[in-house]
Structure formats: C-alpha cells, structure tokens
C-alpha cells in the first residue's frame, strides 16, 4: 500500500498506467474487438463532460468502468457505438475512437454496421413489447435472416448464454414484458448476443438484479470474454473485482486510473481511486 501522504503529492489527476501499449495509428497492430480511445473530449451542448480520455481497451477481456454517479461512464460507453448521435446537443469536440484501427466517427463508417458489431445492454432494461422469441430474433430479422431454423437455433443459443433458457423455454411466445425485472435484463443480454457482436457494452447490467441473477450474469460475463470484448459499467466494487480483468476509474469526466483489476483493488496508484473503492467518497 502507498501511504496517503505520498499519494496526496499527486495534484492533477493523470493517467498512470495503460496495460495495452498505444499502437502507432499509421501502422496499428489491429486485433479483433480492440478499442482505442485517444484524447477524447465530449460535450452536451456547452457542458463538457469528458476531458482528454486516453484508453486502450484490450480485446477478449472484461474491462470495468467505475466511478461516482455522473462522472461520464455511460456517456463514454455510448460513444463506443455512437449512441450519442441520437442526442442533438451531444458532440465529440476533440479526439478519436478507433475500433480495430478504424476511426468510428469517420464519415465512411456505416453506423448501422458499427452498431451491429458493437452490442449494447442498457442501464435501464428495455425489452421490446414483443414475445420473448421475437425479442431475441429481432436483430437477426433486421439483418435479413429469414430461415426459421437458423433463427430458432440462434434464439436458443443466445437464451442459453444469457442463462435464461431454462426459465423461458416453455413460454417463448409470451410477451417479454411478462418476465421479472432480472429476467428482462437477461433477455436484453440475450438479444444483444443473438447478432453475435464483437464487442458487448453493458451499462450496469445487474443494477436491477437479485444476488442469484447477478451471479448468473457475472458467470455469463466470464464466459463471454472468450469470444467477445466486454466493457461493463458498474457501481458494485465487488462485481468489478469479481468479473473484470481491467478497471478504469473515472472522476468528474476524467480517466483517473486504468490498470489490471487486481492492481487497482490491491494497490491503486491514485489517492482518489483508493478513496473511491474503499468507499470514502462517491
């Protein structure tokens, strides 16, 4: 442990450590599902909420975003699949985000294709008012899959991965609204997995779940990282500790620290990080 006195010497918050080395943009070492955020500034109108974010999210690993409420975790997450395009006042004022080496905000990028590759589970679960089956099949049908057997297979596979199959297999054709809050959230996860994205963004996926459902989702996240790059926002320190490989701590729109989860939780480099994870503020 670093003593508090030593840490207080660091006055301005800076990024201390980056696990993945920044690739040279001219010759990026491209890996499937990797995300590089460079000097990103973001504002809602005149309200600047993200300042100079530099972050490389490694592929096929779980990265947790932690930080006090309002520090910009959701905003950053929504930048990664350009969900903020929907908000009129929202602007990236500086910097870039590259996924697999490609700047996702370039005019040549097809945002529809980007969103298919970068799936998202929202902070507030949002099942569609359709049957469970149709919820999961939605993305496939949108993409033009019409073959019934293919859709059937994908629905079962996704529901199994989301640990929901056994609970709903007998009522696939009843409305998703009839499920409990936790089941609805897992339905949303299944829906996102059905289109087989490369990256899955999860915004507090467990905030409405009981400990049992939470354990199921965490188990799921650990399995998913074999195939997917996962970014998860969480307010639950134990959860970040249990299921993430890397942790990014944000405070007031700045990235304070990014490191291996074990390092962040055992030996954080910044005083603010330590205070936050030990519950002294936030």
């Amino acid at each position: 442990m670093v003593s508090v006195a030593e840490m207080s010497e660091i006055t301005s918050p800076t990024v201390v450590n980056q696990t993945a080395p920044m690739p040279n943009p001219a010759n990026p070492k491209v890996e499937r599902g990797m995300i590089e955020i460079e000097q990103l500034d973001f504002a809602y109108g005149t309200n600047k909420v993200l300042h100079d974010i530099n972050l490389s999210i490694p592929a096929r690993a779980v990265t947790a975003f932690i930080g006090p409420s309002g520090c910009g975790k959701t905003t950053l997450l929504r930048c990664l699949n350009r969900m903020n395009d929907l908000i009129d006042s929202a602007r990236i004022t500086q910097g870039s985000i590259r996924i697999e080496g490609v700047d996702i905000n370039a005019s040549s990028v097809d945002v529809v294709d980007l969103r298919r590759r970068v799936g998202m589970v929202f902070q507030k679960s949002n099942p569609f008012p359709k049957s469970i089956y149709d919820n999961v099949a939605y993305g496939l049908r949108i993409a033009g899959t019409t073959k019934r057997t293919l859709i059937d297979e994908a629905v079962e596979k996704s529901l199994r991965s989301a640990a929901l199959w056994d609970e709903v297999k007998d009522r696939l054709h009843v409305s998703g609204y009839g499920l409990s809050g936790g089941q609805q959230q897992r339905l949303c996860i299944a829906r996102a997995l059905a289109v087989e994205p490369e990256i899955v963004l999860m915004d507090e996926p467990c905030s409405a779940l009981d400990p049992i459902a939470t354990a199921k989702v965490e188990e799921l996240i650990r399995q998913l990282k074999e195939q997917y790059t996962i970014v998860i926002v969480t307010h639950n320190m134990q959860q970040a500790g249990r299921c993430s490989d890397h942790t990014a701590f944000f405070y007031l729109g700045r990235l304070i620290e990014f490191d291996d989860t074990t390092k962040i939780f055992s030996n954080p480099g910044q005083r603010q990080t330590e205070e936050y994870i030990t519950g002294r503020f936030g």
């Binding site: 929907l86 294709d113 298919r116 929202f122 949002n126 569609f128 949303c188 829906r191 996102a192 289109v195």
Partner: peptide, 19 residues
C-alpha cells in the same frame, strides 16, 4: 429505450421506426 434498443442491434432508423 425501444428506439435505442433497436438501433443498438444494428437496425437502421427506418427499420426501427417501422418495426
């Protein structure tokens, strides 16, 4: 949330509106 959910699955704006 229904619009965002649909767009996040790779639906175009018009597909989202229609479906």
């Amino acid at each position: 949330g229904l619009r965002e959910g649909s767009l996040a699955l790779g639906a175009s704006k018009w597909q989202t509106i229609r479906k």
